[in-house]
Design a binder for these strands. Structure first.
Ligand SMILES: [Mn+2]
Ligand SMILES: [Mn+2]
Ligand SMILES: [Zn+2]
Ligand SMILES: [Zn+2]
Lengths: 137, 137
DNA sequence: TTCGAGAATGATAATCATTCTCATTTTATG
DNA sequence: CATAAAATGAGAATGATTATCATTCTCGAA
């Protein structure tokens, strides 16, 4: 437990995550990995937790409260629509400079960050506009 | 449902949230509100959901996967330690400029954002340092 | 090489935040 | 007042996550 190297399961989970282009839930990760190797659901959760505390894996929560995991190398962020739930990726991470600055001015060691914008996508904004107009006729 | 004004329950939930200095979970909010008024747990969840979609309430997830809610006026962010779980508040929101810029360059309407840094607080960093040293003796 | 302690694992049960159901109450409106 | 729609609360159902526990693996000491 105090060892500094990864267990076989942790390595497998990390490698699987690194192959993905999108964040995955623990459940999907489990389903995916089961197709290629023998692994238990609990081990997937345990590995994700360990990797998270090692700073190798980052997480974000969906609107439904499910956790999505991704390798820290994939520093991606999204704008998520509160109406339809769709997530739209940002071009690039806008926090590089800010994180560096924070590192300098505080004794906290930053491994990674989560950043997400919430609001309305264009179609949903138009749709809701139409609804409120039809109400005020 | 399509009405643009808040229901009594939504108003009560929002006012209670606005009085808090820290984000609250739906459960704590329910416990707190029960002391002063009659309200159901489901209504608390429904109100939070509605307020979220109205852009009046924002949310973030704890490491344990519980959602915390706060009024959008309270634009606060934290650095959370992956070892002890403690959250340390940031002095100010470093995203004002970035959010304005994003609003301009995209058709997405932003209501609010979540931002959180994860890593090790100083005590935990020292503690883990001590452990890894004692291991390599 | 063999042994034993501790770590890792997988199957399964338990937990618990959140959502769903539905009967009842409140609100809006003529 | 009468009626329909919306809101509400109590409790059941859901489902992601965590806890248990018996088994298997790791690895240093003898
Ligand atoms: Mn980033
Ligand atoms: Mn902010
Ligand atoms: Zn949308
Ligand atoms: Zn800490």
């Amino acid at each position: 437990m105090l060892s500094t190297h990864c267990t076989p399961a942790q390595t497998a989970v990390l490698q699987t995550l690194q192959r993905q282009h999108r964040p995955l839930s623990a459940q999907s990760l489990y389903t995916l990995m089961c197709q290629h190797q023998r692994i238990g659901l609990a081990t997937v959760y345990r590995s994700l937790d360990a990797l998270k505390r090692l700073g190798r894996v980052q997480h974000r929560a969906t609107l439904e409260g499910e956790m999505l995991y991704s390798a820290v190398e994939a520093d991606h962020h999204y704008m998520t629509c509160l109406h339809c739930g769709q997530s739209f990726p940002l071009d690039r991470c806008p926090l590089k400079a800010i994180e560096a600055q924070l590192q300098g001015s505080s004794s906290f060691t930053i491994y990674y960050h989560t950043l997400e914008f919430f609001g309305l996508c264009e179609p949903c904004a138009i749709q809701m506009d139409g609804i409120s107009q039809s109400l005020s006729l």
